[in-house]
Design a protein around this nucleic acid. Structure first.
Length: 604
DNA sequence: ATGTGGCGGGG
DNA sequence: GTGTACGCCACAT
């Protein structure tokens, strides 16, 4: 027996590489209990990609298995899964490589012996997290051995350890280690309209952090001691890379950095012949097309673009850094108009010094915003269980979907497929009816009372057991005590057993109550703050689950569920308004889950 | 009413 | 990369 070492680390990032035509999962983390800033890359060669195949013939899988054996797959197992509350036998088909899945899945689906395939579009690293019960931002314990070979870029990144996992990785309780967070911002000299990377140089790169780093890199000198002057733009960018690698931050945040700062630095670096080795494994900064927008990433660190988060979490007319800063902190931030910024740079003297101040301020503002918004997103990461990088770029509905996917795995449920193009357009034509709205009565009202339901939709889902797997599709007898019937729309839902989605919302709310109780018991204000963020994240999640029924591109889409929920919602609010009227309260305005009312003399 | 196109943030 | 995608507003038809 070989001697096995154990390593514990906070899981920050995950991907896979290919070695000898086989996938190798890489877990990136921050090692606890050792000198700070130490990173680990843990390699796991044992995880295999797979999909589920539902054979046409339910009694005899042999034809199907024989057809599958013709293809270049790894192996086949028969397993039991649950599909819409029914236990069924399915084939679990393993592949040699994740990229074989898109190559072979259409062929498999086209086989006569195959009725349907499932779970064929789950990215490999996400599958790994789900199947191993691992949660990013939590801790992982791995057993295995340290690999001796050093990294190519080890001179620049001296704190990296590569590790070979020999056993199943283990999920540990939430980490209490503090992550190193660095913000950055660039300034560009652009006298002719918007900055263009092929002609306009970078003049400043400002950095702020929670580990003592606070400086502005620039090609001009300053009286401020936070300014470090470099001879050329090329040296300045090189210095930026050097600083990132020596301080080794876990998180890098910027404002619109996905679509401006990082692409801009990248283009300038290419032009000047600088290698942007910002990954902990020495790899370069890379970009992903995500529909209309870019996402910038470096392996092993988490880049978060705060602009995206702010758009999701606060409702504003504009989302400029200045506007957002004022909203969060109630004070104005120094601002220099973009089109005249170059004049400050050219001015020298006091005007130039103002530009240094402005640049520093931007990085500090970005850092302060991250302090406000990252804790909630870290909690969401821990609950949803996908990488922080992804969570920070996912719409709420997507977060809910990945949360449900993980839960489905835990329940041994087969995950529904994403809608096809055709199904998607069909769904779009059936628009769900929304909540009840009573237009406000004109006039100035005094002594207004407000009434609202606490978590109306989650409560309806739980109390009426609204779920695709409890929805009664067929005509059913008159035994109405067995099911709930939605008003207006008439959809029926079994009272028992508890449906998939109601069960999950129930657990989320249960967990939230538990945390709120802990919060009350706690004497430690810091712990209370942490718990408060946790319960807030759970509340957000519970409230957003309703959405997956009504959005056409979701796996758990169900117009019946969406319509039933809003129908019950309208029913509750209207009945409550009627009741209130009897007690002399007249509603003047209502929307979905609450109403405003004025008190009138009761009629006699 | 329905469809199409552009834009957001960044300097 | 088991990729491929937003949501809102203005303006036109």
């Amino acid at each position: 027996m070989k001697h096995m070492e154990t390593k514990k680390f906070t899981l920050l990032d995950i991907d896979y590489i290919t070695e000898d035509e086989r996938p190798v999962v890489r877990l990136f983390g921050n090692i606890r209990g050792e000198s700070k800033n130490k990173s680990i890359i843990a390699l796991d060669r044992k995880f295999k990609p797979y999909i589920y195949v539902i054979p046409e013939n339910k009694n005899d899988f042999n034809d199907c298995i024989m057809d599958l054996r013709e293809l270049d797959i790894e192996s086949i197992e028969t397993v039991q899964k649950v599909d819409v509350k029914k236990k069924i036998q399915v084939l679990k088909v393993f592949f040699k490589h994740p990229q074989d899945v898109p190559k072979l899945r259409d062929k498999i689906w086209d086989l006569k012996s195959v009725e349907e395939i499932r779970e064929h579009d789950i990215p490999f690293y996400r599958r790994y997290l789900i199947d191993n019960g691992l949660f990013p931002m939590d801790d992982v314990e791995v057993k295995g051995k340290t690999i001796e070979k050093s990294l190519e870029n080890s001179s620049r990144s001296p704190h990296i350890l590569t590790f070979e996992i020999e056993d199943k990785p283990l999920h540990l309780e939430p980490s209490d280690s503090k992550l190193n967070i660095m913000s950055f911002d660039i300034e560009v000299r652009n006298p002719e309209g918007m900055p263009q990377a092929d002609r306009d140089e970078i003049i400043m790169i400002s950095l702020a952090s929670n580990f003592g780093l606070k400086k502005v890199l620039s090609t001009k000198e300053s009286t401020f001691d936070y300014v470090e002057t470099l001879k050329t733009e090329k040296e300045m960018i090189n210095r930026f890379v050097e600083i990132v690698n020596s301080y080794n931050p876990d998180l890098i945040v910027g404002y619109n950095s996905d679509n401006f700062d990082f692409p801009y630095i990248n283009e300038r670096a290419n032009k000047l012949g600088v290698s942007l080795d910002l990954g902990i494994d020495g790899s370069k900064l890379k970009f992903m097309r995500r529909g209309f927008a870019n996402a910038a990433f470096m392996r092993g660190r988490i880049h978060v673009d705060l602009y995206l988060l702010m758009r999701r979490y606060i409702r504003l007319d504009r989302y400029t850094l200045e506007r957002v800063y004022k909203e969060l902190f109630g004070e104005e931030k120094k601002d220099i108009e973009g089109d005249i910024l170059w004049k400050y740079w050219d001015a020298e003297g006091e005007k130039l010094q103002k530009l240094f101040e402005y640049s520093m301020d931007d990085a500090v503002a970005a850092y302060k915003i991250s302090e406000k918004i990252l804790p909630l997103n870290m909690e969401l990461t821990r609950i949803v269980g996908q990488p922080f990088f992804d969570i920070a770029r996912m719409a709420t509905g997507q977060q809910v979907e990945w949360f449900l996917i993980r839960k489905a795995f835990e329940y041994n449920d087969l995950i529904p497929n994403k809608p096809s193009q055709r199904e998607h357009s069909r769904r779009k034509s059936e628009r769900a009816v929304g909540g009840y709205v009573k237009e406000p009565e004109k006039g100035l009202h005094e002594n207004i009372v407000y009434f609202d339901f606490r978590s109306l939709y989650p409560s309806i889902i739980i109390s009426k057991n609204v779920s695709p797997d409890t929805l009664i599709n067929s005509e059913i007898g008159e035994n109405s005590s067995d099911y709930h019937t939605a008003p207006e729309v008439g959809f029926k839902f079994l009272k028992k057993p508890v449906g998939f989605v109601p069960s999950i919302i129930g657990k989320v709310l249960e967990e939230r109550t538990k945390i709120k109780n802990l919060m009350k018991q706690s004497q430690d204000p810091l712990e209370q703050r942490v718990l408060d963020v946790q319960q807030e994240a759970l509340k957000r999640l519970a409230n957003s689950i309703y959405g997956v029924y009504g959005f056409s591109r979701f796996r758990w889409y169900s117009i019946e569920c969406a319509d039933a929920i809003t129908a019950w919602g309208r029913d509750y609010i209207k009945k409550t308004m009627e009741k209130a009227e009897l007690f002399g309260f007249h509603a003047i305005y209502a929307d979905t889950d609450g109403f405003y009312a004025v008190y009138k003399q009761t009629q006699t």
